[in-house]
């Protein structure tokens, strides 16, 4: 089943827009041939190579790790590089592809993610570590690392952001992707400013804006759960003082006594 070479044909309906010629977006239909292996990205490439070189979309890694290729397919935000075409056919043997919703369109399937990146920067995505770095690593338990997995593997594709009702209505909302990043920093035992971060996300554009509609969870192609992270942040906002105190306590043990005196691993 890995290489079902049988060719079949399907109609791709693509929502197109070229600011230099089009007044507004319009659908264009393309016929493409596909096999069991063909991804939606492959099909878009096929159109671009053989039918219409002006069809415009972003892509790079082609295996769901760079976050370039999030689009709206049959009404759902997905990564087209990892999605086999055969799984997306509607009853009329068609696949409908639109750019990510709620974001300004630059051209065809390419959207303007500026607001998305601004929110990302607004939460100060970088770790603010203790000023004194140890000679070796800070010690973290495997459980503490595991707790960050939900946020760490976010590829910033924007699928959640552009499916979020709150983002659609309120451009100032920080958004699920950036709140997930904030969660990651708040939860990291090495971060020294969890209190300030909690303050930053607890304003009117932050965690309490989330209506827990769960669109972000449905949309996330990496199976992450921004809503849960947002809920955790909400709880921590309520317990800010105790949480900050616990962090200060924890940071005393980031560095076991013996390791600061032991010789370096090599040298």
């Amino acid at each position: 089943m890995t290489n079902n070479g049988k060719m079949q044909s399907v109609t791709l309906r693509v929502l197109r827009y070229n600011p230099e010629v089009d007044q507004k977006q319009h659908f264009q239909e393309f016929q493409v041939e596909y096999t069991a292996d063909t991804t939606i990205l492959d099909a878009l490439h096929q159109i671009k190579a053989e039918q219409d070189g002006s069809l415009t979309f972003r892509r790079s890694c082609r295996h769901a790790i760079c976050g370039s290729c999030a689009m709206n397919v049959n009404g759902k935000n997905i990564l087209v590089c990892k999605t086999p075409l055969r799984t997306q056919l509607d009853r009329k043997n068609r696949v409908t592809i639109r750019p990510l919703p709620f974001l300004p369109v630059i051209k065809d399937l390419v959207v303007d993610r500026s607001a998305f990146w601004e929110e990302y920067q607004r939460v100060r995505p970088w770790l603010i570590a203790p000023p004194e770095a140890p000679e070796k690593e800070f010690r973290m338990t495997p459980e503490e690392v595991e707790a960050l997995h939900n946020a760490e593997t976010c590829i910033m594709c924007g699928a959640c952001y552009s499916s979020c009702q709150v983002v659609a209505l309120n451009k100032k909302y920080i958004g699920p992707h950036a709140l997930l990043k904030a969660f990651m920093r708040v939860m990291d035992p090495r971060d020294t400013e969890p209190g300030e971060r909690l303050d930053e996300v607890s304003g009117s554009d932050g965690v309490f804006r989330c209506h827990t509609i769960f669109n972000c969870i449905d949309a996330c192609p990496k199976g992450l759960n921004p809503t849960e992270a947002i809920e955790t942040l909400r709880k921590l906002v309520q317990k800010r003082q105790a949480f900050v105190a616990a962090r200060q306590e924890r940071q005393k043990t980031l560095l076991p006594v013996e390791s600061s005196t032991a010789p370096a691993a090599a040298d």
Binding site: A129, A133, E137, R139, D191
Partner: peptide, 14 residues
Amino acid sequence: EHMGCVFSRTRDGR
């Protein structure tokens, strides 16, 4: 690691 990279860990946190 000091800049925030989340590495997998051994039992003793290295």
